[in-house]
């Protein structure tokens, strides 16, 4: 593959980040009735009624979000390739970032699938609907460590890019890397969703839902911004170097 085509794919992959962000908020968040999300303290009957009253939206939201969440994959793939360029021969952090990103997609997909299952027979046994809803929320809220590792690996790799920093072209500024680490550890209170049904640490609470999800999407936005900026810089550099090469090749 020539460099121009490769760079085009890289830009496309980096743009999948914002595309993921928009589709995730719209399908998973808004159509899926997750803003605000159902409280774990709802009774089985109340929860079943919630599905029955918003059935079309919820079904469409989660079915499409299971497809659109895969936009996270090309984004992670590009990110991993870029980290590999920084790391050189032993891309430990790049691999960790890739595995973490891929598993994040599976965690989000499984939880959305459980909610799609809950919406499949809304007139059925309310306790089964509650069980499927609980399963979805506990899967997505308790298994965040894959994403934490993905983000920390990314931040550490960019922070260690001495060559990029010396050249004035790091993938992200240092403050963004530290913010990434903070966002990654902001998920920890979500472990309390396994125990609590009310308050800020329940799965509909500020500390286990709104704040960590905001941090995750905030990181996604910041990282995408710097990634797209980085690819565009590399496209410009590639164009100017090929222009100078063609000038040199011209006979005097």
């Amino acid at each position: 593959m020539d460099q121009k085509t490769s760079l085009r794919f890289q830009l496309l992959s980096a743009c999948c980040g914002p595309a993921f962000l928009v589709t995730f908020v719209f399908f998973w968040g808004i159509l899926g009735n997750n803003i605000p999300n159902p409280s774990p303290s709802l009774s089985a009957e109340e929860l079943a009624l919630r599905y029955q009253n918003n059935l079309g939206e919820i079904r469409l939201g989660f079915i499409i979000s299971m497809i659109s969440v895969c936009l996270y994959l090309p984004w992670c793939s590009y990110l991993s390739a870029r980290l590999q360029q920084i790391e050189g021969k032993f891309p430990t952090l790049a691999n960790l970032q890739l595995i973490g990103g891929a598993l994040t997609v599976m965690v989000v997909s499984f939880s959305a699938c459980f909610w799609a299952i809950a919406a499949f027979r809304p007139e059925g046994n309310p306790e089964l609907i509650q069980f499927a809803t609980d399963s979805g929320w506990l899967i997505i809220d308790l298994q965040y460590a894959c994403t934490t590792l993905q983000m920390v690996a990314f931040a550490l790799c960019v922070l260690s890019d001495k060559k990029g920093q010396a050249a004035g072209t790091p993938l992200m500024p240092n403050w963004a890397c530290y913010l990434t680490i903070f966002c990654a550890v902001s998920f920890f209170p979500a472990s309390l969703t396994g125990v609590l049904k009310t308050g800020p640490f329940a799965w509909d609470g500020v500390m286990s839902y709104y704040f960590p999800y905001f941090c995750w999407l905030c990181w996604e936005t910041i990282a995408s911004y710097f990634m797209i900026k980085d690819v565009r810089r590399r496209i410009r550099e590639s164009k100017s170097s090929s222009a100078s090469l063609s000038l040199e090749a011209q006979p005097a």
């Binding site: 240092n174 530290y178 704040f211």
Partner: peptide
Amino acid sequence: GLEGVWVFVTADMTVFGILFAL
């Protein structure tokens, strides 16, 4: 210290601020 540590400290203190308010 590093500027990044101050980013981290500011963000962390904000979270605790929210928790104290809650």
